[in-house]
């Protein structure tokens, strides 16, 4: 077994995943105050709109596509009559559409962040690294889906499942083209970096808004005791 493959395709992913899990949890517990998306819409609205909508829709669909395609083994798709060729074709075409959307969003946002005086002044280096990293990962993905022309279902997918289910097989990555290797490695790095950035807001999808009362009240817990006291 090649040490470099073990380091890059087993140790590094676990390092990043550990940072991801521990980092997000730790930050949620200790740094709730800085846990948000740090929107800059207030400073410049017009240039944000298409960038942010394209990027978010693109990246969420991309994520769902990756999760569905890589984590669920092909044999389950076969049960529903989706052959690996159909699977690849769907992944290819969908990947092209949502990948382009996400990349276009990234580039629009990057241009805004670099050229708009207010956004640049209010932003931080961290924001630039985050957006730059996202752009690189997305660009790599888009390159692969257009020019990669490689069946990932028998190599990258089982390798990722191996990582997730704690039986890593770095050798699976040996025949994979360089473009895919760079893409996955950058993606792990981005996951590892995410707890230190504004990306923490991915956990804050406002699901409860759809079920809660419109008007919220909160009661000072000390006063609840007081009520009991005054009655007695």
């Amino acid at each position: 077994m090649d040490l470099s493959y073990t380091l890059v395709f087993t140790v590094f992913p676990y390092l990043c995943l550990t940072t991801f899990v521990v980092g997000h949890s730790y930050r949620y517990v200790t740094d709730r105050y800085a846990w948000n998306a740090r929107s800059s819409q207030l400073l410049d609205n017009k240039s944000l709109r298409w960038g942010t909508v394209l990027f978010h829709l693109g990246i969420i669909l991309t994520f769902l596509g990756h999760a569905g395609g890589l984590l669920i083994p092909q044999k389950y798709y076969d049960l529903f009559g989706i052959t690996s060729q159909m699977h690849l074709a769907i992944a290819h075409w969908m990947g092209e559409v949502v990948g382009i959307a996400a990349l276009a969003g990234c580039l629009l946002l990057l241009r805004r962040r670099l050229t708009n005086d207010r956004v640049r002044a209010a932003g931080s280096v961290n924001d630039l690294i985050t957006l730059g990293g996202l752009t690189l990962v997305v660009a790599g993905g888009v390159y692969n889906v257009f020019f990669g022309n490689y069946n990932v279902l028998d190599s990258v997918a089982p390798w990722i499942r191996g990582i997730v289910f704690f039986s890593p097989e770095p050798e699976l990555m040996r025949p994979v083209p360089l473009g895919f290797k760079i893409h996955v490695t950058l993606a792990w790095a981005l996951l590892g970096f995410s707890p230190f950035s504004r990306l923490v807001h991915i956990w804050s999808a406002p699901v409860f808004y759809f079920f809660r009362n419109p008007i919220l009240f909160r009661r000072n817990p000390e006063l609840t005791r007081k009520v009991v006291d005054s009655r007695s």
Binding site: Y209, R212, F217, R218, R219, L223
Partner: peptide, 15 residues
């Protein structure tokens, strides 16, 4: 504002 907040961060103090 309270009804608009997706996170439920805004609230009215009951007391």
């Amino acid at each position: 504002c309270v009804a608009s907040c997706p996170s439920g961060a805004l609230y009215k103090r009951e007391e």
